[in-house]
């Protein structure tokens, strides 16, 4: 099996960050996932991990737009 999707079934876009609130991907990244080669999927997962780390470092309630 290839690279696992980061979808956790939240599937709601955050208007400020332009990212899915669940998987922290852009619409382009989600829409292109199924057809993306493994190399691109790995790049997307790396970007998601970076976004997650930056989000976790923000104080509670800080605007998400700082992340995108």
């Amino acid at each position: 099996m290839s690279v696992a999707s980061p979808c956790i079934d939240v599937c709601r876009m955050d208007a400020q960050s332009g990212l899915c609130e669940g998987c922290l991907r852009t619409i382009d990244e989600i829409a292109g996932w199924a057809a993306a080669p493994d190399e691109r999927k790995i790049l997307i997962l790396a970007a998601v991990a970076q976004r997650r780390a930056r989000l976790d470092a923000l104080p509670v309630g800080a605007a998400r737009k700082e992340v995108s």
Binding site: S5, C7, I8, D9, C11, I30, A31, W33, A34, A35
Partner: peptide, 28 residues
């Protein structure tokens, strides 16, 4: 084009047909 998410929303499939398109299934 296959729009793949998880279990709560089924896959959505978009078919390009010239200037038009068809969608199969619409998710949760």
């Amino acid at each position: 084009r296959v729009l793949e998410r998880g279990w709560l929303s089924a896959n959505n499939i978009v078919f390009h047909e010239g200037a038009e398109a068809t969608l199969v299934d619409s998710g949760y």
